[in-house]
Structure formats: structure tokens, C-alpha cells
Design a protein around this nucleic acid. Structure first.
Lengths: 189, 189
DNA sequence: ATATTTTAACTAATGATATTAGTTTTGAGA
DNA sequence: TCTCAAAACTAATATCATTAGTTAAAATAT
């Protein structure tokens, strides 16, 4: 059913992921991926519709990886412990895979429904972690947005070397997470 | 002292800023800027060393604009009121100038010392806003990092349409800012 | 086993892009 | 008015993405 086999969508994705991981997001080009697969650039169009689709694939996969890491880290913890583990896993992912994280940021073109859906799933998951804070639906959503923004902010500022001072980034993040979580606890008794 | 005048570094920067504002950060190219200035692309190299330098100019200028907006918004307020105004100005800038904000994120190559210095100045300014919370030096720095990350996180997630739910973003941000600020207040009495 | 058909590779070509080299022009100052 | 440096130009190279059209191989049908 496929002559000259050996290259399937999975192989294309894998090649792109490897390039993103080793050389950064910008290094993902039709040429570089084709070269890594041992074919000429135009031949890659037999497997993917163009650079945009390729980027979208990478972004979706990177987001799934990030989600998996987060869910695994939270395990069946709840409350503060779960949130702190969540943050740890998030920051760790960005440190380990800066290129992939960059792709998640870059890709969200208007077309990428999958990205949006993955994001929604993550929100639901985090809302679940906040169960025992007895928040209203609205409070819970505000909080999830805040946690996500805080952690994303730390991750992306760290990635772009935004923290010059000799103060541990993890400590700073935990300090602020605790401020928020303690505030929630106080709010609900 | 300059034949065929009319184009100086300021004009180049202005052209690039206009393009970033109207068409987005990616639209800043040697070609587009040259075209807007009415010259051929290679001629632009008489005024700027290349695309990287051009991007760096835009990023530095955008960061200064953002700083000015923030400082103006904070005025001579202090404490919570200052921080809320700060956040407002930050988010407002990103909404008004998404292309410029994008350039701030993009540019920080390792060479850009100016970007780093501008960031440091901003940190000092915000530390000043927190005077009456009576924090230790370290607590203040953790807090500034947190506020910056939270606001940057909100701004950049909003820009990339990361918030799907029909819940006001400004409300979410204020909710979380207040959690943090109330937590600080409690911590110090 | 052979013929057909599908499809993945190819080459060639087009049109952006950035950038360098080398040349011409022009305007400011001697 | 002449000189010269600066700023424009043209020409060329290299790297992108992408499209069109061709060839070849492998799976399938006869």
C-alpha cells in the first residue's frame, strides 16, 4: 500500500521533534527534516502538507508530552502538594525541552483546534486538584488561570534569561505559589 | 556629513516599529523596512548591520515604551494600588502593541545586554512599590519575580488566545494579584 | 508471472528571504 | 569648483518554501 516505505507520519514527526530538541524550534525547516530523513525537500510534501502543518504536529505532540509529565507528577496528590509537583514538572519540562516548549508557544495559529482542546483538558485537571479548597466555580477558574500564568511566566522568563539575579528560581516560584494557595485556604476557612 | 540624507537610524527604527505595530513582529524584514524607506534592500545595510541588529533595536525600544507606560501608570502610588495600575498598564500595552511585545520576547539573544539592563531597572522600580510591605530583600525579590511572571503569563497567554473560557481576563488577573498582595500583608502584619 | 496502478521519490523551476561585493552617484565641505 | 566619503545602486550567492511535472518502485490485480 506504500512504495518506498520507511517514512510514515510518525517518522516525520520524530525527525522534527529531534531537531527541535537538539537545535531549537527555529531549526525545524522543510529542508532540515527532509535531510534528516534522507530525502530531498520536495519529497517531504508527500508526507506533510507544508511547514505549518509540520509545526502544528510538533506543537500538539509537545503539549501532550507536557501534559503527561504534569499528570504523572501530580499523581493522586491533591491540594498544595499536587500544585507544587505540577509546577515542578512544568518547569522541568521547559528546562529539558526548551525547543518543544517554544513550539507550543509559537504554533497556536487560529486553526489549531487541537491545541485549544488540550489546554481545556489541562484546565479541568487542575480544577480537580483544587477540590478540597471548596472554591466556587468562578474562583476555581480564576485560580487555575493564575497558577497557569504564574508558572508559564516563570518558565518563559527563565528560558529567555529574564532572571538575572542570583536567587533560585524554584524558590521564587514556590514562594509565590504558597502565597496564592495560602490565600485560597484562608478565603474558604 | 551625509549625502542622500533623509534616512538616519531613527527613521529606520521608526519604519520597523510601524511595521511591527501594523503587521506583526514577523513582518519586520530587511526587505519590508527598506521598501518602507524607499530604498533597495542592500542599501539598508548602510544604516544597520543586519536583521538581528534591527530586531534588537526594536526590542529595546519596545521595552522602553513598556517601561514608560508602567512607570507613568504607577505614578506616585504605592502598594496595592500601584501594583494594580502596573498590571493594567502592562496588559494594556500588550493589547495595543502585540507586535512590539512579541519583539521583546523574541529578541533576547545572548548579546542583548540592553534588554537585561532595562529589565533590572524595572525590577528596582517594582521593589520600590513594595516598600510599605516591610519585606526582607529576598522576599521582595521573590515577590517581584512572581508579579512579573504572573502578569507576563497573563499577557502572553491572552495574546496567544490561551484563555478560551468566557471569564474576564482582567478579573482573573486582579483576583490573583490580590491573593498575592493580601498574603504579603498578612506575612508582615 | 506479468501487467497495472498507486505513490513516493526525483529534477527543475519560481519567488521570497538575507547578505556580500563591487560600482556609481551625490551632496557636503575644502 | 573639486574632492571624497557616504549612501545609494546592480549583480550575485545562498538558503528558504513551494509547485509542477517526471520517473521509478512497490503493492495489487490479472
Amino acid at each position: 500500500m506504500s512504495p518506498r516505505a520507511g517514512i510514515d507520519p510518525g517518522a516525520v514527526l520524530r525527525a522534527a521533534l529531534e531537531i527541535a530538541d537538539s537545535e531549537g524550534a527555529e531549526a525545524i525547516t522543510i529542508s532540515s527534516v527532509a535531510q534528516r530523513l534522507g530525502i530531498r525537500p520536495p519529497s517531504l510534501y508527500n508526507h506533510v502538507s507544508g511547514l505549518n502543518e509540520l509545526r502544528s504536529w510538533v506543537a500538539v505532540h509537545a503539549l501532550r508530552q507536557l501534559q503527561d509529565a504534569i499528570v504523572a507528577a501530580a499523581g493522586n496528590k491533591k491540594g498544595e502538594a499536587a500544585i507544587l509537583s505540577f509546577a515542578d514538572a512544568y518547569i522541568g519540562f521547559v528546562r529539558e525541552h526548551p525547543g518543544l516548549y517554544e513550539m507550543i508557544q509559537l504554533a497556536p495559529g487560529p486553526e489549531d483546534r487541537e491545541i485549544g482542546e488540550a489546554g481545556d483538558r489541562l484546565v479541568d485537571f487542575v480544577v480537580g486538584l483544587l477540590d478540597d479548597y471548596n472554591l466556587t466555580k468562578e474562583e476555581a477558574l480564576h485560580t487555575v488561570r493564575g497558577l497557569r500564568s504564574l508558572i508559564h511566566g516563570f518558565a518563559s522568563l527563565e528560558r529567555q534569561k529574564g532572571f538575572g539575579l542570583p536567587l533560585d528560581v524554584q524558590d521564587s516560584l514556590n514562594f509565590n505559589l504558597k502565597l496564592i494557595l495560602d490565600g485560597l485556604r484562608r478565603r474558604t476557612g
